[in-house]
Design a protein around this nucleic acid. Structure first.
Lengths: 201, 201
DNA sequence: TACCGTTGTAAGCATGCGCTTACAAGCAGA
DNA sequence: TCTGCTTGTAAGCGCATGCTTACAACGGTA
């Protein structure tokens, strides 16, 4: 354990980044509650007192982590591809485990505290706004939320509950089932009584 | 606070039930980590040492709670109605807050520990088996998991993240959007290329 | 070289947690 | 009434946590 940390021995910015990276990794792996400041400092190869010097508190650190990786991914993904990218980000089969790390970190941290949930709400708002832009329906915001809920639910079952067969299914099969349904939901035209025009047979 | 607890002053079965009820309520409200054994005992109006006498550990208590309310709901709901009942159970607008409490308790507790996740997996298996029976598709188990994931995701956004507009939408609107799509997913026949037969308009 | 703010360190404080222990009070059978 | 098991209680143990403090080492500047 303990990352590199070679180079200049005294470099505030470098240790800040090391802490940020270590925190992102641990929050993603274990969630907020089960990640201790001692573990973060240890993985970063840094004295834990520095964590408080640079970030003030564990919660503030979490906020910076989510904000950083959340924005980073949203900004580099084009809207039409967000749905698939986010879904595949929930399916840690591919090597690109860093993709949409923020969603996973948040997923493992739900219910830890009101501030954590609030941070998640902000992140969710950004994702929803993008998804919403893909829909013409009058209730597009609600539809976007439902799609986002599905993404989170799949992630929940897959990475934290690890329930078979979902946890073992290959990403392509999942995408083949989820993406068309999600797109239908986003694109579907609502009738006056609130039901989608497609009947439930 | 402290529930009734009148009647016989010394009644092991009654205090066991009081603890079970208090634990169910608190786990549902706050999740596993944020619920303390002291709080459970206090709400039950019982000395906390008794909790350990009767259940051995906090985790064992959680297991009994989930098993009890999970089974109870599953046994009293007919398969065809499970989907709607479980979904509405996630939307705590109606007064029937006790419905599918187990799913909500689990939802707020994900990631607390491996044993907790395992308990959730067992519960999920039971729900999935019922949902799966509604589908004729060859990959019915996976489809059932995806539907269950959606239910959990909606609950996550609604009760723990409380993200608008999903959190504020009325249950009927949500059902009108989710149920047809979920039923389509369950009933839909997969074509050779993996897309459902119903086209996206 | 002498200084001084910045960066790093070791130790510990206060708190809340799950859980245990030692003991009192109630109740049943003799 | 006496005995012995069951039920309830008060106190606290040991530990891990987030966070703080007092101090040492470094390195640029004068």
């Amino acid at each position: 354990m303990g990352e590199d940390r070679q180079g200049r021995r005294r470099d505030a910015e470098a240790t800040r980044q090391a802490l940020l990276d270590a925190a992102a990794a641990l929050f993603t792996e274990r969630g907020y509650d089960r990640t201790t400041v001692r573990a973060i400092a240890a993985r970063a190869g840094v004295n834990q007192a520095l964590l408080f010097r640079y970030f003030g508190s564990k919660r503030a650190l979490f906020g910076e982590v989510v904000e950083r990786s959340g924005h980073r991914q949203l900004l580099t993904t084009q809207p039409e591809r967000l749905l698939e990218m986010a879904l595949r980000g929930m399916l840690p089969a591919g090597a690109d485990s860093s993709g949409h790390q923020a969603l996973e970190a948040f997923l493992r941290s739900t219910g830890s505290s009101d501030e954590i949930d609030a941070a998640g709400r902000l992140l969710g708002n950004e994702y929803a706004r993008v998804l919403e832009s893909l829909s013409d329906a009058p209730d597009a915001p609600l539809r976007a939320d439902l799609v986002l809920a599905w993404l989170l639910g799949v992630g929940l079952m897959r990475v934290v509950v690890r329930k078979a067969p979902l946890a073992d299914a290959d990403p392509d099969s999942i995408c083949a089932l989820v993406l068309p349904a999600a797109r239908t939901l986003l694109e579907g035209i609502a009738t006056s009584d609130g039901k989608t025009c497609r009947q439930a047979q």
